[in-house]
Design a protein around this nucleic acid. Structure first.
Lengths: 215, 215
DNA sequence: ATCAAGTCTGAAACTTGTTCTAGATTACCG
DNA sequence: CGGTAATCTAGAACAAGTTTCAGACTTGAT
């Protein structure tokens, strides 16, 4: 049974279950299919954003039957969130190579996020598709969205240079993530400029300084 | 021509235009129709959230033809954002009556937001519909979403007790709004507890203190 | 009161996400 | 190799948002 296909229908189990733990063995061809699907998804998204990722087209592009696509990713949102996980992994790798150079944790986090932001600016449609999916996701996608969130947290903590953060620091990180997502949305929907997003990120990163002295 | 019907199609004008300025005279019956629609929308949303607001049902409930519904609100998202504007106005009125009592601006803002949060908890499905619509909105809804954002800003500045905020304070307010929206989403999708949202709000409100001393 | 323009209605059509089905194909076990 | 269960395919079918259209109704101006 392919990766995300655990919660197959959206009417069934109310309970949450882990997304990582057990990845039932994927045969090579299945792995290849999964990869083709994600690739097609990213490609279509890079063109027209969320709306351009049409399930029939993804299926066709990736040489897979519609039913199979739905077996791998139980909904369009699942697919796009998985696409985001994929891209995030890339980005984390890239970021690791050149760690941010700021003096303070706040500066390094801001720099890291701005770097990520510039990467998103290169593929604004892709960014649109992924971010919209992420915020539109309902409970049935929670495990996957949570995974993205955890991954983001790791990236930020990395930038801060922390191994075991205090609760106050985790709160600050959560708020930074909130701001990050929401600022992206306002940018994507044309309600905020790039400069504005930069300011917001820098502003929220000040919270980090607050946690070293205060609380 | 009814209120939001300015940008009638989504393929037409790329330009943004004001939502408030000119409200071409609405006859009484039109005003009544608009009200019925918003009422039906809120009612359906209060049951099953975003998914339960089905355009055909809204039309039927409000005794209006489907085509008419679309003339008043060019999409489901427009409708729900308008519903949110409506509810926000209510809330602002309610909040005005009992201003928050905290000593610092940060406390008052946090208290105000928590009060709003408790109101949303009373109608979680309605909250779901409105917030999901807000974050899912694409550029064609920008003016309306912006209006909601401005309204929220006013509420927060009210709580801070400010007349003309500095740029730094406006940044802080924007970050608070980001956090507010995103925290709501994590709560609505079951990824964060009420307590967690409270902490996030309190955390981000500290930024306000930062703007009085620093910068 | 009457006419023209604009609005509203009811119903059908179209689009795209999602589900379902019957029949091939593939993977694995003995 | 043969059999069986799981997977995949093609395609129809369904659901809900959106568009379209012909005809009835309102409104406002003359």
């Amino acid at each position: 049974m392919p990766a995300e296909a655990k919660t197959s229908a959206k009417a069934a189990q109310p309970a949450v279950r882990a997304a990582q733990p057990v990845t039932p063995p994927l045969t090579e061809r299945q792995e290849a299919r999964r990869r083709r699907i994600l690739h097609a998804s990213a490609q279509l998204a890079s063109r027209g954003g969320f709306d351009a990722v049409q399930m029939r087209e993804v299926a066709e592009s990736s040489q897979v039957a519609l039913g199979t696509l739905y077996r791998y990713f139980p909904s369009k949102v699942h697919l796009l969130v998985a696409t985001m996980q994929d891209q995030l992994a890339h980005m984390h790798g890239t970021l690791r190579k050149k760690p941010p150079a700021g003096d303070t944790a706040a500066e390094r986090v801001a720099e890291t996020l701005m770097r990520a932001f510039r990467a998103l600016q290169r593929e604004p449609h892709l960014a649109d598709a992924m971010v919209r999916a992420l915020t539109f996701a309902d409970r049935s996608v929670s495990p996957e969205v949570d995974q993205v969130s955890r991954q983001t947290t790791v990236i930020i903590l990395d930038a801060m240079g922390l191994d075991d953060p205090t609760p106050a620091q985790l709160s600050a990180v959560r708020v930074i993530e909130h701001t990050w997502h929401s600022a992206l949305i306002t940018w994507l929907s044309g309600r905020a400029s790039i400069a504005q997003v930069k300011i917001d990120i820098e502003t929220v990163c000040r919270l980090i300084d607050l946690t070293s002295t205060d609380d």
